[in-house]
Design a protein around this nucleic acid. Sequence first.
DNA 1: GGAATTATCGACCAATTGGTCTATATATCG
DNA 2: CGATATATAGACCAATTGGTCGATAATTCC
Lengths: 178, 178
Amino acid sequence: MGVFWSRGYHATALPDLLRATKLSRGSLYAAFGDKHSLFLRALDRYIADALTRMDVELDPRRDPVDGLRAYLAGYVDRTSGANGRRGCLLVATAMELAGRDAEVDRRIGSFFKAMEARVADALSRAKAAGKLADAVEHSSAAKILVCFVEGLRVVGKAAPTRITSQATADALLDRFIR
Amino acid sequence: MGVFWSRGYHATALPDLLRATKLSRGSLYAAFGDKHSLFLRALDRYIADALTRMDVELDPRRDPVDGLRAYLAGYVDRTSGANGRRGCLLVATAMELAGRDAEVDRRIGSFFKAMEARVADALSRAKAAGKLADAVEHSSAAKILVCFVEGLRVVGKAAPTRITSQATADALLDRFIR
DNA sequence: GGAATTATCGACCAATTGGTCTATATATCG
DNA sequence: CGATATATAGACCAATTGGTCGATAATTCC
């Protein structure tokens, strides 16, 4: 997964994969079929990791606003400095392959949907607890937050400092909570 | 430019470039040096186009809130439906090459800076005109908007409808203006 | 018009791409 | 132990990669 993550699909050549898996050509093809299948497998793992992380951060038993703060803080951490430079397998894949690879399309689409649903759920719990500002509607606010964090991944490529990214995320959340 | 735009750097092979430029191999190399230089030239044009478009939308002689609305509407248009599927040369390049190509790094970084400066300027004019909500600070709000529109480009790869994207953008702007 | 220069082409090149296949080692099991 | 099945390695392959070069066509200039 790591090698696709930091290089992208096309830029990752078989030798890179062999080095990373410590397998020989024959074994790799016996185990995974081909480069594309292996990539899909890596992408699936990346997505599963991201979703389980969100399930922890936005756990319904936690305070929803704390959960959203943790969720944003996680993105801030992953998109600033050297972490930001490394980028995101999912966003890189979306930009590189979406629209040309049906398998990828499905995964990208369902990931965004799943992420948005989790954020929307947290927001609606926050609203029920009276912690949301007036006139904030949870489903559009969820779309906003999803766009924002994915945008962080893009802007993070320029390696901003954690301080400024965190301040930006805080400023956004402040427009929604009271 | 078009071919890099819709395929990305690595996925664009010489034959694609030859077809697009209607040049032969020799002529192309005589005219542009190599693939990398040609790519940089395409990227520069893409960036210049984006900045001049912003200069029109956020023209200081216009009402700043109208300008911001036009700016967001432009992104909504470019990131929904089939336009969204096509993606964005700049974001794709950031994800694919940033951190591995110094020339690209410089361009990506300065583009984000330039975009943020223009948005911040429009916001500060809006503030001076008393059209911003209380406690909105123009520089962090500008960072938020930049992240948001870049996030739109990513999420746009899943080809959302113009209606929902526009509603999302409206909902965000509503948190800032009064 | 004719010489000199420039632009254009596509055959050609080495290196690399993703992928296959056979020979050999390793493990499994009676 | 010995036979069989499995896993591994890396030589090998056709196709494609980005890039070069010499022959030819077009243009420019006197």
